[in-house]
Each structure stands twice: as C-alpha cells, then as structure tokens.
C-alpha cells in the first residue's frame, strides 16, 4: 500500500505539479491532509470495529445529527459545553443501540446500522426543517479552527486518536480481545473473552468519534447543516478495507487503514485536478473498492482461516 501510494504521488506530480508542491507551499497537499484528518477521526474507531468483525453504516447520520443538535442548542443560547454534551449524548445512545442490538438481540449489523443511520439522519433533517443553524460563538468555532503550535485542530484530533487507537489495538488486552473476537467470535467466547462487551464498546467508540467529527465539522463551517457529510462512512470503510482490514474481522491495522484512506483521498483529489466530473469520480472510486475487496476475497481463498 505504501508503495502504491508513493507511486501514485510520483505519477500525479508529473501530471500536475500542483498536486504535491506547486502553488502556495504545498497548498493542495495541505488540503488533502486536513480532509484526511477529518476522516481519520472516524477511521481510528472504525478500524477497531472492523477488526472486531463488525461494521457500522450509521456514521454519516450520527455526524450530521450531532452537528445539528449541538448547533441548534448553541443558537438557542445554551453554553458551548452543554450543547456539545447534548450532541455527544445523543450519539452515545445510537452507539449503544447499535451495539446492544447486534449482540444481545442478535440483530443483523447491516440492517441495524442502516436503520440507525436512517433514524439519526432523519433527526438531523427533522430538527432543522431544512433550515441550517449558523453563526456560533467564537469558543465553539475554535474547536475547528484553533491552531495550537501552528497546526490546525483536525490534525491534532486525528493524530491523537490514531496514536491512541494504534496503542490500544497493538498493546492492550482490549486490543488483543478485539482481534480474537473478530478472528473467531465463538472461540474467543469459549476462552472467556467478553465478546459482546468488546463489540458494544467498539460501536460506542465509533459513535463517539462520529460525534466529535460532527462537532468539528459544524465548528469549521460555522453552520450545522443536516447534510454536512454524505459518503464519509463509505470512504472510511473502503479506505480501511483497501488498507488491509478484513470485513470478516480479525485482521487489519490502523497504519494500513490510514494508507488506504490516503489512497482514496489522493484518488478523489487527483480526479478533481484532472477535471474528471464528480459522477465519473464516483465510478472510479467504486471500481477501486471492488478491486480491493476482490483481492481480499482471493487472499482468503488461498489461506483458509482456522
């Protein structure tokens, strides 16, 4: 993946110097980094969920819902901390519902998280009634735009969350249990791994990361729009899978997923630079995802799991 990424950068730099460095000091690359950072907030938690053998389609809805709830409360005059707490609490509820539904109630994760995506997206639309709230207090805007040490907030969030996620997955007992749960759920349970707890915690972490993402988006836009993100969820899951996370669980790493996401980000960006229409961009991204999933399936066939 690293090699593919470097090759891609080289090719694109030849096609257009603006891709990497020309213009205002790596301007385009900085744009890509910030966009990747925004996605990485969710990616950090999503990788954990994927490695544990689950996935979550409700992310876009939760991001938008959290932004809208927090935004509406801010505009109504509530203080910043309380408005954020309320938004996060709603996201937490969605995460708990997802986790409990697929474990205790044995509901299908695809339909469950599709359902909660629908509900949370509906809440976002319902609250705004199509009218977005905007003009937030400076303290809130700083959450998205402050630049400690000259580095913009989304990069801070992304780096901190990714580092924590790498550490949790690779070093902690919880991380080991996530891999065991994804690799052989019943086997792990027989050995005393609390597999349901692992899954519920992972769903909650994805929801909380989505909440943070929604708040940061609202702060950066200085507006809470019910359709702030549309496609972030699939971009993150696709990036992770391209980067080596198996949808069957048990396999994958943060670093790999990040490289996959980087590739997806570059591909989107390059399509824009090369003036490919957004419709064809979708098509290209789709083909790349299909190739990645196909390669994953082929690899599976060669090495049957125990």
């Amino acid at each position: 993946m690293l090699v593919i990424n470097l090759a891609f950068i080289l090719i694109m730099t030849r096609l257009s110097p603006y891709f990497l460095y020309a213009g205002n000091g790596f301007a385009n690359f900085r744009v890509m980094l910030v966009s990747m950072a925004m996605d990485s907030i969710v990616l950090a938690a999503m990788v954990m969920l994927l490695v544990g053998g689950m996935f979550d389609l409700s992310v876009d809805g939760v991001v938008n819902m959290t932004g809208v709830i927090t935004g509406a409360l801010l505009v109504s005059g509530l203080n910043v901390a309380l408005a954020i707490a309320a938004g996060v609490a709603c996201a937490l509820v969605v995460g708990l519902i997802n986790g409990i539904a697929v474990t205790r109630l044995r509901m299908n994760p695809l339909m469950t998280t599709l359902g909660t995506w629908w509900v949370s997206q509906g809440i976002a639309f319902g609250i705004t009634q199509g009218i977005s709230s905007h003009t937030f207090p400076q303290a809130f805007i700083d959450i998205g735009y402050a630049q400690p040490l000259g580095i913009t907030m989304p990069i801070w969030y992304a780096v901190i969350l990714l580092v924590i996620a790498v550490w949790v997955l690779a070093k902690t007992k919880f991380g080991y249990h996530v891999y065991a749960t994804g690799g052989n759920r019943e086997g792990a349970r027989l050995h005393g791994v609390k597999v349901d707890r692992v899954t519920i915690i992972s769903f909650v972490l994805v929801a909380l990361a989505s909440a943070l993402s929604g708040i940061v988006y609202a702060a950066r836009l200085n507006a809470a729009v019910p359709q702030t993100v549309n496609g972030l969820n699939l971009r993150v899951i696709s990036g992770a899978v391209i980067g080596g996370c198996s949808l069957n669980g048990g396999e994958g790493s943060i670093i790999g997923a990040l490289l996959g996401l980087f590739f997806m980000t570059m591909l989107t960006n390059a399509s824009i630079m090369l003036n490919i229409s957004p419709y064809w961009q979708m098509c290209i991204l789709g083909v790349v995802v299909l190739i990645a999933v196909g390669a994953d399936a082929l690899a599976k066939r060669r090495i049957p799991a125990a």
Binding site: A180, G183, N184, G187, G192, A305
Partner: peptide, 17 residues
C-alpha cells in the same frame, strides 16, 4: 479447537488470559 486463525501461536495459547 476454538482457535483464532488470524492470530499467531503465542496469542492463541493465551486468548482471554
């Protein structure tokens, strides 16, 4: 056997413990 195929021998000897 209840083994985790995607993990190495060392981890499999200690899954859950």
């Amino acid at each position: 056997l209840a083994l985790v195929g995607t993990r190495d021998v060392a981890h499999n000897l200690f899954v859950g413990r």
